[in-house]
Design a protein around this nucleic acid. Structure first.
Lengths: 210, 210
DNA sequence: TCGACCCTACTTACCGTTCGGTCAACGCCT
DNA sequence: AGGCGTTGACCGAACGGTAAGTAGGGTCGA
């Protein structure tokens, strides 16, 4: 049996991040104690301090891991789509799917650095968040350029999409009957077409020739 | 000068709620300490315990006060509007305006009862929240009934509107140049008409005669 | 004198963090 | 082959600090 010691460490570290995310999601950053996390992992408190320098570093690892994974998935999914509406739908579905698969880590990451000084980790997290949002920004801009979207305020549109996705973490439960991606789909439909009925039965969309 | 003592108490109590909201908004529930709050009010810790039985009761008062005020304002604003789109706009504007005027209390209330047992206060808060959301639900339902809205999932539409409004608390700063109600307006426009352009220059809307 | 209102000083419990030690596995020299 | 120092991974116990909450007393207008 290979190397029980070398890999035990990596495994424990991964487990710490996983269980810490659960505790943070449940009780918030300040509310989740190191003792709780250690107990949830099944190790002693000093074990946490062997793998991480302090509590904040554990939290930072959760946030940065979530954000970078989401960006990677989003970019891959978006690149495979032909036009802006399809890209928007893919973006939203991937985001919702990530929430579904990583509920605790996602919620923990959403708690944000409220009340943490975290100059280093916070900076990296903000950078990653901006990069993620830039993907959506690109989709909106492309849609406006090609004429499939008509928006007076692109930034507001970006915020609206992100609001819908981010707020899902507050009410979505992965054990329900409707999967997260399905909700993302419905959101996308409403965002694309609006609440008001579109009068004609939608003839072939007129392409705007510049 | 009337009754300095009797009313001093009410004043202190109000001030406690106000300053506690600031602290909660800044540091989260667990992160904001009773000592911090007392210091922010300018009194000693026992003064807080004279007016409230414990920390949780202070938080509960913030939440219930915010929710009941929002419902009162929303119902008043909505009642004065002629049709569903106008009502939706009024609802969204009032919600955003409340955030603008009561930033700290609103953010504190949004923190939610994460990690609090609070059987009593939490129940009352959930009830108030449901009543508030019922106002929006009514608007959406009315719009669908009259035909000005065409929605396949009314609940999803309600969630979408609330997501947009609730998430504002995460990025909106009241000292910016664009007021909250303006953002609510832009959101409302996008929600009503969608991202995609509406082909005709919008002729007089066809009323659906049943 | 009474009760509303608030204080100083304190208790108790838990927090994040650290210290010193343990113990198995590995590399290395003889 | 066998002793031996090193390293990775972890533990028990305790640290100083701070948290929520309390005991008991003082003040002052009605």
């Amino acid at each position: 049996m290979a190397e029980p010691q070398q890999n035990e460490g990596r495994d424990t570290r991964r487990l710490i991040v996983e269980r810490a995310a659960e505790q943070f999601a449940l009780w918030g950053y300040a509310g989740a104690s190191i003792s709780d996390i250690a107990a949830a992992v099944g190790v002693s408190k000093p074990a946490l301090y062997y793998h991480f320098s302090d509590k904040e570093e554990i939290y930072t690892e959760i946030v940065t891991s979530v954000l970078s994974q989401m960006r990677a998935r989003a970019e891959a999914a978006v690149a495979a789509q032909p036009d802006a509406p399809a890209k928007l739908r893919a973006f939203m579905r991937v985001h919702a799917q990530y929430l579904h698969e990583n509920e605790h880590a996602y919620i923990a990451a959403q708690l944000g650095f409220r009340g943490l000084r975290a100059t280093e980790g916070r900076g990296r997290a903000l950078e990653l968040r901006d990069r993620y949002e830039a993907v959506l920004k690109g989709i909106i801009a492309e849609g406006c350029r090609s004429g499939v979207f008509r928006l007076t305020d692109q930034r507001a549109a970006v915020m609206l999409v992100l609001s819908a996705l981010n707020w899902m973490a507050r009410w979505y439960r992965s054990d329900g009957e409707t999967p997260a991606a399905e909700f993302a789909d419905r959101y996308c439909n409403m965002l694309l077409d609006g609440f008001r009925p579109r009068d004609p039965p939608r003839p072939a969309r007129r392409k705007r020739t510049i």
